[in-house]
């Protein structure tokens, strides 16, 4: 394999990594805000894509109002989940929380199967397919534009957390809920908002993934591979999610190019095992100190 092909795979991988970073952002938001790793993230993506299918394809709405309706639906779902499942479980041991989100994922998966059926559906291609050439390197259009969309969304979230009053309150509640509560921040509201925002990132990522491939209840499985990204980047680091998303995207693409497609499925999990052995808190995560 020559250098140009390597470069091409690298660029495509980095661009694909943008999408991974977006999904990872959903995980990180929830972990930072509520100390929960949301194993139902993939099902949030899937629900977003299905809602968009219903509003855009079945109801034949223009994509903009369809997207707005979808996001509203997912926001409501996120708030409902926070209120009915996660809030009663706050302070419970890790296994309860892990299993609650897994159970939630199963419910959503079953619900999607019951409502929309298990067959593959097709979303119209939202992103232009026309490839873009950078010098001699070809980048598929969808990959490039999904990268751009992911960057825009991540940028918007970062700006929101940096500049808006609510965003600052959410960061405060994430870093120290008790103090934040004492300072008059409504911690329940911030944790509800956290779930809503994570649902929104998931829905957008799900719509992009579904429009590039196809839509079925199995769409949610994508998110399990993203666990590698958040472990590599650190569970509570937004910067880590972005850097690690790009790194894993690159690694997957290069593995496909050099070793073959089968090994691709294995890459994220081998990365997870290595990282957990060597540096469990990830590249940018906070090292947890335990006190008795």
């Amino acid at each position: 394999m020559d250098f140009l092909t390597f470069l091409e795979f690298s660029v495509v991988g980095l661009a694909g990594g943008g999408l991974l970073a977006l999904i990872a952002l959903g995980f990180v938001l929830i972990y930072k805000g509520t100390r929960v790793v949301n194993f139902a993230m993939g099902e949030f993506m899937m629900m977003g894509a299905y809602l968009f299918y219903t509003t855009h394809v079945a109801w034949k709405l223009h994509w903009a109002p369809a997207l707005a309706l979808t996001l509203a639906g997912i926001a409501a779902l996120g708030a409902l989940v926070e209120r009915t499942i996660l809030r009663p479980l706050s302070g419970q041991p890790v296994i309860s929380i892990v299993m609650a989100t897994i159970g939630l994922g199963t419910i959503l998966h079953g619900a999607a199967d019951a409502i929309w059926g298990g067959d593959n559906l097709a979303l119209p291609e939202l992103l232009p397919r026309k490839p873009v050439f950078v010098g001699e390197i070809l980048i598929p259009g969808q990959v490039l534009w999904s990268f751009a969309a992911a960057c825009a969304l991540i940028g918007a979230f970062l700006a929101y957390f940096r500049f808006s009053r609510t965003g600052v309150a959410m960061r405060a509640a994430a870093s120290d809920p008790v103090t934040a509560y004492a300072m008059g921040i409504d911690v329940r509201r911030t944790s509800r908002l956290t779930w809503i925002f994570a649902g929104l990132t998931g829905a957008v990522a799900g719509i992009i993934v579904a429009s590039m491939t196809s839509l079925s209840p199995a769409l949610g499985n994508v998110a399990l591979g993203v666990l590698a990204v958040i472990i590599l980047g650190g569970l509570d680091s937004v910067l880590g999610a972005i850097v690690a998303g790009l790194a894993i995207g690159w690694l997957e693409a290069v593995t496909v190019g050099f070793i073959g497609g089968k090994a691709r499925d294995l890459v994220p999990y081998v990365v997870v095992l290595v990282i957990l052995m060597v540096r469990p808190y990830g590249l940018f995560g906070t090292r947890e100190i335990e006190r008795l």
Binding site: I85, P88, L89, Q92, S96, M99, A100, I102, G103, L104, G105, T106, I107, L108, H109, G110, A111, D113, A114, G118
Partner: peptide, 22 residues
């Protein structure tokens, strides 16, 4: 609807027991 119902019941049992009878 059998197989989706199975999944929904399975998930609901997990969540329900965690919340109401840990």
């Amino acid at each position: 609807l059998l197989s989706p119902m199975r999944e929904i019941v399975f998930g609901a049992l997990i969540v329900g027991f965690l919340v109401f009878e840990p």
